[in-house]
Computed example of a mutant assay.
Amino acid sequence: MTTISQKKTLEKSTYIAQGEYAIGDTEDTVISTILGSCVATCLWDPVAGVGGMNHFLLPDGPSSRNDISSFGANAMELLINALTRAGAVRGRIRAKVFGGAEMYKGLTNAGNENGVFVLSYLQREGIPCDSQSLGGVQARRIEFMPALGKARQKLVADSRVIEAVPKPEKTNDIELF
Rank of each mutant, 00 (worst) to 15 (best):
Y121S: 07
G136R: 06
D158H: 14
E113I: 03
V47P: 08
S131H: 04
P168W: 09
G52V: 11
N172S: 13
P62C: 08
A147L: 12
S120Y: 02
A157M: 07
G24S: 07
R94N: 08
Y104N: 08
S159W: 04
D25R: 11
S70C: 15
A164Y: 01
F56K: 04
W44D: 08
I16N: 06
R65V: 15
P59Q: 03
A151Y: 05
F144H: 10
R141W: 10
M1N: 11
V89N: 10
E11L: 15
L35F: 03
G52P: 09
P62F: 06
F98H: 03
R94Y: 00
V89Y: 02
I127P: 10
C38L: 05
R92Q: 13
N172R: 09
T9H: 00
K105N: 04
L78K: 09
S120F: 01
A40E: 01
S5W: 06
S37D: 11
P128K: 06
S159F: 06
G72P: 02
G100I: 02
T29E: 04
R160V: 12
E20L: 07
L176M: 12
S63L: 13
C129S: 10
R92S: 11
D28S: 11
R90H: 11
F98T: 00
V97W: 00
V39F: 01
F117Q: 02
A139S: 15
F144T: 00
M76L: 10
Q153K: 15
G19K: 06
L79Q: 07
Y15N: 14
G87H: 03
A86S: 14
I23Q: 06
A101H: 02
V165G: 00
P146Y: 10
T14I: 10
L10W: 01
F71P: 08
T26E: 13
A164D: 00
G24Q: 04
I34Q: 12
I31H: 01
A147N: 11
N54M: 05
D67C: 02
S133R: 13
S69N: 12
D60E: 13
C42V: 04
R65A: 07
S159Y: 06
N172I: 05
N54L: 07
R65K: 12
A147M: 14
G51N: 06
G136H: 07
